[in-house]
Nucleic acid binder design. Structure first.
Lengths: 212, 212
DNA sequence: ACCCAGTCTGAAACTTGTTCTAGATTAGCG
DNA sequence: CGCTAATCTAGAACAAGTTTCAGACTGGGT
């Protein structure tokens, strides 16, 4: 009986643009994410300490928790942020290859290079993503949808993908995440990750027999 | 300057059969893993609390940490344990299908069913596995090798696999881990996991053009 | 039987994520 | 302006992983 419901309006500050945040609140949220990114870039998952994030962002610890109910939520939100930026960047210079499978591989390798530039940040975000439990599933799902969109974008401007293609995309996403983890934990080389990505992308050729 | 090196021999108790553990030590290790499994089966990752494991196993907290330097190490070792058992079980009744890809899918689905029987235990082990950082890479690698062996076993009794086949197996392993995570975190159904496994197993057909 | 090095125990201490509380501030509203 | 609900702040408090320490115990060699 100690959970929520202090008063009918007591509620966390959600992320979506659905809720009308005031100017100061939006600014706070931005400062928090910015501070998180900086700390994560410097020292990875462990360096993102809630007290430090709060101090760097200039908010009280309790406020930080009101905006992001856990460290995992915070890092997953950071990943959303970064993915959105990446998506924007990739849109500007889409992959050139004529083969859809190659385009997807190219796109993922570009994303991978982005992560290589900030390995600590990548570490923090990916670890949070895979460690997340059910209480974060909505947010993780958002990240997953963003990633799916990224891959579908790379596959081509075509109409609605077939169920088979969607399955292939799911498997590609699985491989992408897991390969990233093996790289971050030092068990696979960059070259190995590239090979895995290229290997799994063959599944796309399997599902698009007709050559455009 | 406060780290290790108390005396030239101060050292953790490693896992491998390389070190000659005394009878009592082997028993302690067994009790610890057993206690871990029980606690994990009951409540998943969070229920495996180091103090409780120590108490249930009848060892001091410090001893637990001497055997397993972190909660993650402990759970990864538990996974090794379980995988070994599973491997034994699977060897006894190998998959029947004539198609290698189908055999692999069958094997993984059997493993998946085993996890469904103890979802909390699966949760604890898989979360530990993907959360593990570099300090656990050796142990995680062992688990990975066991998994690879499981898949290769299912593929067939043939000679040394080609590099292409090994790549396919790597991707299958990635998909297996990641699909498991999405299931455990409630973002994918059992049916969805099956589809993903079957989809990725097609890669095997791609690398074994000659039908036996 | 005695001794030494290495191990184990019990308990306290430390760290970092998370929760809670009391009081200041702010936003919206009449 | 003056009120009220909601939010924010500072800081204590709590939980669980990890470390540390002094003393008891064990096993092997002499």
């Amino acid at each position: 009986m100690t959970t929520e419901s202090k008063s009918p309006t007591a509620r966390a500050v959600p992320a979506g643009p659905s809720l009308p945040l005031t100017e100061r609140q939006a600014a706070r949220r931005r400062r928090i994410l910015q501070a998180t990114e900086e700390l994560a870039s410097r020292g990875g998952f462990d360096a993102v300490q809630m007290r430090e994030v709060a101090e760097a962002a200039g908010v009280a610890l309790g406020t930080l928790y009101r905006y992001f109910p856990s460290k995992i939520h915070l890092l997953v939100a950071t990943m959303q942020d970064q993915l959105q930026q990446l998506h924007g960047t990739l849109r500007k210079r889409p992959p050139t290859d004529t083969d859809p499978a190659a385009r997807v591989a190219q796109t993922l390798m570009r994303a991978f290079r982005a992560m290589q530039r900030e390995p600590h940040l990548a570490d923090a975000m990916v670890r949070a993503l895979t460690f997340a439990d059910r209480s974060v599933s909505a947010e993780v799902d958002t990240v997953s949808r963003l990633t799916t969109a990224l891959i579908l974008d790379a596959m081509g401007p075509a109409g609605p993908p077939t169920p088979e293609q969607l399955s292939a995309v799911r498997v590609i996403e699985h491989t992408w995440h897991s390969a990233l983890i093996t790289w971050l934990s030092g068990r696979a080389s960059i070259a190995q990750v590239r090979i895995d990505i290229e290997t799994v992308c063959r599944l796309i050729r399997l599902t698009t027999p007709q050559q455009a």
